[in-house]
């Protein structure tokens, strides 16, 4: 049951996108997201679509996996589109009872839909091709300048990677405790709302205790290896930009320029 949930779904394969420096992928994804909000005409979206298709092709991730992420947002997508369709003022095409459908409404609804789909697809390519550890490494390096402002960048990155690492462990633990309590006759599925909330106590108490125990063990293990934060800490695999990263940056910059020129200014 619970083990079916996937988070931070990395897809293991070897491709040029997988090998890119995580910093390139993070900033590339961010710029792609920004570009989606810059463009507002058909050609702009076409450019974005082409860029996306190219990235998917290069990443060698099967389409099935990319669209798996879509399932989670399809309700959000539907609601957004319906609201935009119904609530945008403009020239009405037809009216049913009190509901007016306008040309502008259809336009914004489609645009919003496409924008959301591209947004999710773009960010899933990043999470599918980058392991959580690479992501936090990249983030740490990118945020490094903020250390000057006394932001504990290394600590934040460490907390993030530990949190990500513990998600599957805690899910498994939840599954186990749930089964153990079900074996003692616990019922998590039926009854009134209050009863159901109450029935979670036998699940939550052991889960919290186990989480604290694990946190304690981990802290002890880190302590035993003399971990003391980011000061003067070196990495086994430091992030180094290579030629392909430079090329990727150029491609992303080129894409952004195209978006601004064709998607915004010319038309």
């Amino acid at each position: 049951m619970l083990r079916d949930i996937t988070l931070g779904q990395y897809y293991q394969t070897d491709s040029i996108i997988h090998r890119l420096d995580p910093r390139v992928k993070i900033s590339g994804t961010l710029l792609f997201l920004v570009s989606l909000f810059i463009v507002d005409n058909f050609i702009g979206y076409l450019i974005a679509a082409l860029f996306l298709v190219m990235a998917i092709k290069l990443s060698r991730v099967p389409l099935k996996f990319i669209f798996k992420g879509m399932k989670a947002i399809y309700l959000l997508l539907l609601i957004t589109m319906i609201f935009n369709l119904l609530l945008t003022p403009g020239t009405p095409i037809f009216t049913i009872w009190k509901i007016k459908i306008t040309i502008e409404g259809i336009k914004t609804a489609v645009m919003m839909g496409v924008r959301l789909v591209f947004l999710i697809t773009g960010s899933s390519i990043m999470t599918l091709t980058t392991t959580p550890n690479q992501l936090t490494d990249g983030l740490e390096k990118l945020l490094n300048p903020m250390k000057k402002l006394h932001v504990p960048v290394h600590e934040i990155a460490m907390m993030m990677s530990i949190a990500l690492r513990f998600i599957p462990i805690l899910l498994e633990e939840t599954d186990k405790i749930m089964k153990a309590q079900m074996a003692r006759g616990a019922d998590f599925e039926s009854g009134s709302l209050i009863n159901r909330a109450k029935s979670l106590i036998p699940l939550l108490v052991p889960l919290f205790i186990s989480a604290f125990r694990r946190a304690n063990d981990l802290a002890m293990a880190m302590e035993a290896r003399c971990y003391r934060g980011g000061e003067g800490r070196t990495k086994m695999k430091p992030l180094v930009y290579r030629k392909r990263d430079a090329i990727a940056y150029i491609v992303i910059a080129g894409y952004l320029v195209l978006c601004i020129v064709f998607g915004k200014i010319l038309f």
């Binding site: 186990k176 405790i177 089964k179 153990a180 309590q181 079900m182 074996a183 003692r184 006759g185 106590i201 036998p202 108490v205 052991p206 205790i209 186990s210």
Partner: peptide
């Protein structure tokens, strides 16, 4: 059934609450 077939999981002390 679960009353008749009692199952004690591994490390059962982790389910105490």
């Amino acid at each position: 059934l679960r009353a008749k077939v009692g199952l004690v999981f591994q490390y059962p002390e982790h389910q105490l609450f």
